[in-house]
Amino acid sequence: MAVEPLLSVRDLTVTFATDGGPVRAVDSLSFDVERGRTLGIVGESGSGKSVTSMAVMGLHTGADVSGSITMEGRELVGLAERDLNRLRGRKMAMIFQDPLSSLHPYYTVGEQIAEHHRVHFGSRRAASRRRAVEMLAEVGIPEPRRRAGEYPHRFSGGMRQRVMVAMALACEPDLLIADEPTTALDVTVQAQILELIARIQQERDLAVVLITHDLGVVARVAHDVLVMYGGRAAERAPVDVVFAAPAHPYTRGLLDSLPRLDDADDAPLRAIPGSPPSLLAPAPGCAFAPRCRRAASAGAEARQRCERVEPGPVAVAGHMVACHLPLGPDAAPCTPSSEATP
């Protein structure tokens, strides 16, 4: 796969100034996304996954963003707001968790989609309006001509998210960033939206960045997975590798702790002890070390290294992992839990 990536992120660091001192929400993050592929970014609250997507869109006005974000070779970090505005919507678009709060309640759905098109293409009112109806049809909204004239509150949660997808795609961007696009939706509606995104991706050869906490969603739609923890990349690999042979103890722990629908086991789950770290007081070493069983059971010297030295990313055969004690590819497969933990 020697394809030139569409989006290339290198050493991205996002720091916010807070009353409690600077908070590094994203720390030295690197990844690529190619056309036609979906990168799933997985993490829990405070992992930095949403901050990353906002940084790519250039939406962090108050934060200090360093490193490099290039789109088709063009650097986005430090780009003037005016130039960014030209790219946003046109080259890259974003959909969010809660479609109702991202839609303007005073304008009809059709007007909101058409405005996008007018701004970026300078098209006439009638043409942009036609485009809006076309887009609503494309995302599977029945009676698009009539629905284009309705206000967002008339749409159900799933239909609103379809409207967001229509709006995001109206200007034919190359990159779609979807931040927890189905988290607020019911599971039957989630399945519809995931299918919609996958279909449109195929038709348009879109690069998609899907941000989620749900490992099931990632398994269903992602080609590559980036696991984040405490603002850093823990692991990055093709989806099958991440699920079949996770190298980071955190990834492994997440998979082991998950109750599974296809598992009739009643034994207690193998929970990860503790809670995700606070970014206000980051540990000097590996962010996961305080919760890591592998570190805890390692020798004193190795454990000290985990606690004091931040592990840098190491790449082995396309599989990147940031861990002093990575799991080997021959570690026991990730089967549903059978052993109990206190």
């Binding site: 989630q190 995931l194 990632v218 269903r220 599974r260």
Partner: peptide, 13 residues
């Protein structure tokens, strides 16, 4: 409902 829930297993998915 059961078939809509994504499994954390890309091969089975």
């Amino acid at each position: 409902l059961l078939s809509a829930v994504p499994l954390p297993d890309p091969v089975r998915e």
